[in-house]
Design a protein around this nucleic acid. Sequence first.
DNA 1: GTCCGGTTGAGAACCGTTGTCAAATCCCCC
DNA 2: GGGGGATTTGACAACGGTTCTCAACCGGAC
Lengths: 144, 144
Amino acid sequence: MTSTEHQEHGRADAPLAGVRPTRQRLAVAAALEAFDDFRSAQEIHELLAQRGEKVGLATVYRTLQRLTESHDVDMLRTEDGEAIYRRCSDTHHHHLVCRECGATVEVEGPAVERWTSSIAAEHGYADISHTLEIFGTCTACTAG
Amino acid sequence: MTSTEHQEHGRADAPLAGVRPTRQRLAVAAALEAFDDFRSAQEIHELLAQRGEKVGLATVYRTLQRLTESHDVDMLRTEDGEAIYRRCSDTHHHHLVCRECGATVEVEGPAVERWTSSIAAEHGYADISHTLEIFGTCTACTAG
DNA sequence: GTCCGGTTGAGAACCGTTGTCAAATCCCCC
DNA sequence: GGGGGATTTGACAACGGTTCTCAACCGGAC
Ligand SMILES: [Zn+2]
Ligand SMILES: [Zn+2]
Ligand SMILES: [Zn+2]
Ligand SMILES: [Zn+2]
């Protein structure tokens, strides 16, 4: 558990809380702010390189992993299994994603949340998580 | 395009339609019938080996790929990106999957289907598809 | 300054998956 | 029954995303 580490350092509610805000970690966080779409770790690494920020690929992966675990970024998988990341709002939500351009809309569905947990309870499954993503073609891509 | 191949052979509605029902392909199909849970390609390959059916791993992958494309099996990805396969019912449904043992329950949620299409329409997205999977730990795995 | 644990990064390792291509197999027609 | 040509197979290599390794590198505490 990460919760056993000493938490006196850093604010408990900010991204990168409880860890050293190193140049590399701040750079990854900044890159995520720069994007509005889901991006792969390698794309983020590439953007950092273009910006002149030298950050090792392993560090990008480690940082994204940490941010995902702390729910500061959303991670989902493309059709072919690649992990992609996006800085999202704090509340639980899902995504409406354009399969052409990647434009993303956050969506909430309290009824769906209730439905999934009732289904799980009904069958005795514990420690539930769920994935729900909607893919389509946005207006811009339909027009273009 | 696979649609350019001659399709006169085989029934158009059966699994493996339009391709030679070779020993290997039949063995993979049989293995899928034997399982009631989602299984990875490598697990299926291993089962075939245990049964004495010698089928190359590449052939297992190729066959599963073909069956997935023809919608004769469902393919989804575990939380760490691995593809898993299952022979399912024909109607549209989603899954409640044990992340330990793969035990699967098919679930239907008409309300969810309606919700996803209304969300999509609301934002002007067209040509909609969606993924919805629920992961948890089944009673057997919780007990064990 | 020294200490010391957290952090980094280059590269290797890992692992699921796909590509390669010669050999085997099947199907059709003679 | 015996070619012949397309399909299929499988051992193995290659690939791509991700994680591991571990020596070097910080950066606060004292
Ligand atoms: Zn999100
Ligand atoms: Zn949800
Ligand atoms: Zn299914
Ligand atoms: Zn559905």
